[in-house]
Amino acid sequence: MNQAYNDRTAGEKPAVIALEGVSFGYDPEHPILHDINVSIPQGQWVSIVGPNGCGKSTLVKLLNALLPKSAGHISVCGHTLQEETVQSIRQCIGMVFQNPDNQFIGQTVEEDILFGLEGQCLSYEEMKERLEFYTGKLGIGHLLSKHPGELSGGQKQRVAIASILAMKPGIVIFDEASSMLDEGSRDELMGILRDMQAAGSYTILLITHDADEILASDRVLALHGGSIAADVSPAELFRDAELLEKCHLREPYTWQLARELESRGITVDVPASEKELIDTLWQYNYSK
């Protein structure tokens, strides 16, 4: 790891991603991103939020040169992004896209997941082990022999996620990769990410609009009009009505409920469960 990219303000861990003065535009008159400066330490879980069209997907695509930056300096995993380093940078980033159809290559689910692993020259046993582990975790073990075309939207998303996670990339980037999963599957996915983060070797970037996903992260980068409008914790975000409005976000249902109650003169903590809230209200005493 190149110590030159240490960011003292971000803690003791070295920055695994650093952007300085980065801009991008399809045409120069309408820049999509303008002068982005941000540093992400190794092991952090970051949510990237903002209204539709604010440049979230563009920002992450710049990191591994899927799109060419028009100005600025990007470094990932100690490599300064330039033509010679693109290969090394791409090896440490695993990206799951919005639409899983954009990343299928194999004839079957199994082939598709193994493709990335073969590229890493892993042993047969290692590949088999990872295949079993990640397909098991994502509940797609029964789909291994299926053609991607036979899968439903949500199943495709799980396959895309499994094939990226199985490569164990140092940086995992999800571009609204859970948008088509039901609530239960999304919770499971968050659990997997939490385990990965706890293992310490993963940096996670999640583009999301989902309040519960944001709540699970360490840090929120809010994009607005092509710039970083706020760099805050999830709790700070959800307490800031103006920022929420600006980012087109809503707080989690439980936060909403607590706020609505408060505006009616009933002060309660954000409830952890429906039972907790109803118990509190049942015993609620105004004179308190």
Binding site: Q98, S179, M180, H209, E245, H248, L249, R250
Partner: peptide
């Protein structure tokens, strides 16, 4: 509509 709100921000969704 098949999951019309999947990738919309919450304000656009509402």
């Amino acid at each position: 509509l098949d999951e019309p709100t999947a990738t919309l921000d919450p304000v656009s969704r509402a």
